[in-house]
Design a protein around this nucleic acid. Structure first.
Lengths: 357, 357
DNA sequence: ATGAAAGCGCTAACAC
DNA sequence: GTGTTAGCGCTTTCAT
């Protein structure tokens, strides 16, 4: 083999090493334009159903798109126009109620032109903020925040940069973003009233613990509702709020300890089924009869509440509808609506044996 | 007021109307360069810690970045370099086991430079495919797919376009992407063996139903493990596989019907706690004693399995570790690793009363 | 060590 | 109706 031939071979091998792994370079709008024998902007117009394209041109372009299996590059689009991507920030994902909301969101969004990407905040506001900024930086077309742990002013700052709808944040005075909520104050009142109607007076609330509570949070609203109901019934002096540390692992233990206290209440309204179910479990282990020795009402009417061995009365806030409405609200805002929309859905009580009679 | 002054005022007002709503135009790399009195590429190099920047220049640029609160535009970056964004596709989110995986993933990814965005497939392969393509189109730096309902060949096609790790897909022969799995075959064998050791011979399996089963799916692997264990014990002729339609709403009803059949088995291995818990519930409603009349073993050792009123024996596959390992594997592949990595974690049985003795 | 110039894939403004 | 030109914010040669 001559020196030239050897050199040629080496080049061939090198080219293969470089060229092989990268698949047959994805088609761009340029490739399509070339293939269809038209200009690049012409293709762009077809893609966006823009005004002023002849049928003939559209046919040609669409044929080329199919043949080349072309799909527009979202990243490039992001620099000039829309990305057709909606960002959703979830506070966390273990609470089954949030899954209802996600289902409602997807139902509406998947039927639209938009794709949905989720960020999961792990209940940490710093992580939430960085995810929101990342979504804005990705030039997403709109944001839905679910129960964010972020202050109202900061949210308003984000809303100036991107169309935004917030779920689980009771700030009906916000002008730059929309909100969709369940009436958490009313939900709590319904629960406590149901206990009062059944003759209870020693009714405590088991609430979530937060480092930095905020009037806009759902748990603050439920707390207000609890106090309202107690006061209205003249039981204000009996009001008691219990807390357990917000830590997944030892939470069940802390909840059990609560029931072992001498001053255990006769009735309990829990901010979430997550805790209410643990109460039911602990009561069974401690041979405390529900509802005769302890009446319990939870919140969210999660699927486990309805199971035969739990039978937990609970406030139902139909997360599916909340999610679907939030998605529709965002789409209408992206569509150009400027005035803020603040929706409040009414919750209802799902009566079950833990409530007593 | 003079005509000129009036005109001037109108202009001012108009400018405000236009200028006010859009917030103080986000700083770009150009703004920073101007502010620091350096070139645009210089700023870019500082951002990427690139080689060859003097300390003096770095100081100046970093000061300007802080002062202007500059954050690079991911969309623009996507066109030339990295996005520092990882995409995760989840088959769905209601199964608590998937939440363990998400926790494991986030633990590793949040400690890295990468941000994580999730797609939720709603158990529909068409939606999954469109989400994956969207993520590729966003020029994400890598993908983690969790239990995708997509065929191996299609996955290989995606893997040619982006670094990829797949969880819950038993294709150890794949060369273009990595996999991380629990040994589902072994898990099923452990469960069935535990029942056999306790004297059972009439052991059925309750499996997931799929339109289009695939040897690579976890449920197929568990089915194989079930048959292996039965055959090894000489019980092959007793093997029976039960199914219920994969539909969230009437699934509990179908499961209850299963226990009302005359040929109800004496022991049951369930592909998931999701179904096993419903079995426990139905048994209680039908006054079928667990474990004396029906022994049950579930899969995933979800938190509900351990609750006092359920007490369900279950196979534990430590989703946290699977998620964390998958994230590490992806980072190493993004880092340049070319050879495929296929990890198999060993599951274990969590013994509880539903197993009998 | 630093900057000038080119270009990623797409869309918008304006000719023709 | 269609093509030409310019430019989004960033990274990457390649001079100097």
């Amino acid at each position: 083999m001559t020196a030239q031939a050897e050199s040629f071979m080496r080049d061939q091998i090198a080219m293969n090493i470089i060229a092989k792994p990268q698949s047959p370079a994805r088609a761009t709008i340029k490739t399509v334009a070339l293939h269809a024998g038209v200009s690049v902007p012409a293709v762009s117009k077809v893609l966006r159903n823009a005004y002023g394209v002849s049928d003939a041109l559209r046919q040609k372009v669409e044929a080329s798109i199919r043949e080349l299996d072309y799909r527009p590059n979202v990243a490039a689009r992001a620099m000039r126009g829309q990305t057709f991507t909606i960002g959703v920030l979830l506070v966390e994902i273990s609470n089954p109620f949030l899954q209802q909301i996600v289902n409602g969101l997807q139902e509406v969004l998947n039927a639209s032109n938009y794709k949905t990407l989720f960020g999961i905040g792990q209940s940490e506001s710093a992580l939430e903020a960085s995810l929101i900024e990342n979504m804005i930086s990705h030039q997403m077309d709109g944001l839905i925040l679910v129960a964010p742990q972020i202050h109202g002013e900061t949210l308003a700052g984000y809303a100036r940069q991107i169309p935004m709808v917030v779920i689980g944040h009771h700030e009906a005075t916000a002008t730059t973003f929309d909100t969709v909520n369940s009436n958490d104050r009313e939900g709590a009142e319904i629960a406590v009233r149901a206990l009062i109607e059944r003759g209870h007076t020693d009714i405590a609330m088991l609430n979530m613990t937060r480092e930095d509570p905020d009037e806009y949070n759902v748990d603050s609203q439920r707390l207000i509702g609890y106090h309202n109901a107690m006061n209205k019934a003249g039981l204000g002096h009996h009001a008691r709020v219990l807390h357990v540390p917000w830590n997944m692992s030892d939470r069940p233990v802390a909840i059990k300890a609560l029931l072992q206290r001498l001053d255990r209440p006769r009735a309990l309204f829990c901010w979430s089924d997550l805790d209410a179910v643990r109460i039911v479990e602990a009561a069974q282990e401690l041979s405390i009869d529900i509802p005769d020795e302890l009446a319990v009402v939870g919140y969210d009417n999660s699927s486990i509440a309805g199971m035969a061995f739990v039978n937990l009365a609970s406030i139902d806030q139909s997360g599916n509808r909340i999610g679907a409405l939030a998605a529709e609200t965002l789409l209408s805002r992206i569509g150009g609506r400027k005035s803020a929309s603040h929706e409040l859905m009414e919750p209802r009580l799902e009566v079950r044996s833990s409530l007593g009679s």
